[in-house]
Design a protein around this nucleic acid. Structure first.
Lengths: 209, 209
DNA sequence: GACTGTGAAGCCATTCACAGCT
DNA sequence: AGCTGTGAATGGCTTCACAGTC
């Protein structure tokens, strides 16, 4: 099976599978079937096999998958066999939380640079990372070989910050601001809008009345 | 057009449209075309029209949509013509940020109750909301007519907390923990996994090598 | 002329179902 | 007998294209 376009939904599930496998590793489980994974993460077993099939044949017919092996493959596929240095722009409420969030570090994402424009915040520390002004952005990106940026600034500043990240050579941006950002096609952009998620809930609740 | 099943992607876009319209309202724009909206939020104009068509005919052929009118319709559709009281469980790094996050309040989501198990956190305040122990959950949900819960506890506590929310009568849950949660089918569940989003980026970057 | 609303077509992801291996 | 890997079928969302309206 040769495919260059992988559905985004598949990538997201791989991430979930990898976490489940990690859990199994901790429990000392040696092999697992697509059905086990399916049950553990709430999808169909065919879905699990299809997702894995995009990347090769990792299992043994009649047996299943070796947990350690499959886990290794998934981490490699997801690009998590390395540490990613990250620049976070915006050290407000949300930004601070992201900077201190353990979940990132656990998966190899290291926020090595934090940028803010507020003089009151510059010079303070979040965890053990110094909050620095915008003008060091370019240097830090180069120094730390940063390819991923996280934007958690107010909507009004989001595009400006994004332009600077792009200019500094950032290749992928995770945007937490509720603003549609324009980036060159060479830069990967993902949006996480926390309110949108609540609104999907309120929509569904409102629908039931 | 009579449809009862609305694609989730449509609902998410409606939320984005509504924000864009709000912006136009501020700018004093009176009418807008599907093409304008499309350009503003980065989708196709046919997509905009299709999304709106699920809910009725809001526009005038040859003219477009009245901004104020369409905005009102969308807010109503999304269930945002009311304030939603919310209970937040888990006042750690992420939970605190969510509690203080302005974006929720702006859209009518009011975190009226905050729950944590850590004695050190109980009794403190986040904004002007007291952090309270788990055993008041049921009472607070009743008192404040809370139907939506946000889970931002460590993975190990997530299912327990979820069960309690369900038991207390919560109808929808937004889960920030990296754990697959089991809920009765009557309860709406959405997951936001911050790491997964970064991992989609690292996957795409790793792919390019 | 401009723009909406919508059936039809196209495309993509998921599910089915089974051949192939252990 | 059990489970993977996968072509075929299905289902659902998006895009196309145009008739209808202002």
């Amino acid at each position: 099976m040769k495919v260059y376009k992988i559905p985004e939904a598949t990538v997201m599930r791989l991430s979930v599978y990898s976490r489940f496998l990690h859990q199994l590793l901790d429990e000392g489980v040696a092999t697992v079937s697509s059905g086990d994974i399916a049950k553990g993460v709430g999808v169909s077993s065919a879905q699990v096999r299809k997702d894995l099939a995009y990347f090769g044949e990792f299992g043994t017919r009649g047996v299943g998958y070796r947990v350690d092996e499959l886990y290794g493959h998934l981490m490699k596929i997801l690009g998590l066999d390395q540490t990613w240095n990250i620049v976070l722009v915006g050290a407000g409420k949300l930004g601070s939380a992201l900077a201190l969030y353990q979940g990132f570090a656990e998966r190899g994402f290291h926020i090595s640079t934090i940028i803010d424009v507020d003089p009151a915040r510059i010079g303070t520390k979040l965890g053990n990372v110094l909050v620095e002004p915008l003008d060091v952005l370019q240097d830090r990106v180069k120094e730390n070989n940063i390819r991923v940026g996280v934007v958690s600034v107010p909507a009004s500043a989001a595009q400006d910050v994004t332009d600077r990240l792009v200019q500094a050579g950032i290749k992928a941006i995770l945007n937490f601001s509720p603003r549609v950002l324009k980036v060159p096609s060479s830069v990967i952009l993902r949006n996480v809008d926390l309110s949108v998620n609540l609104e999907v809930l309120s929509f569904n609740l409102a629908l039931k009345r």
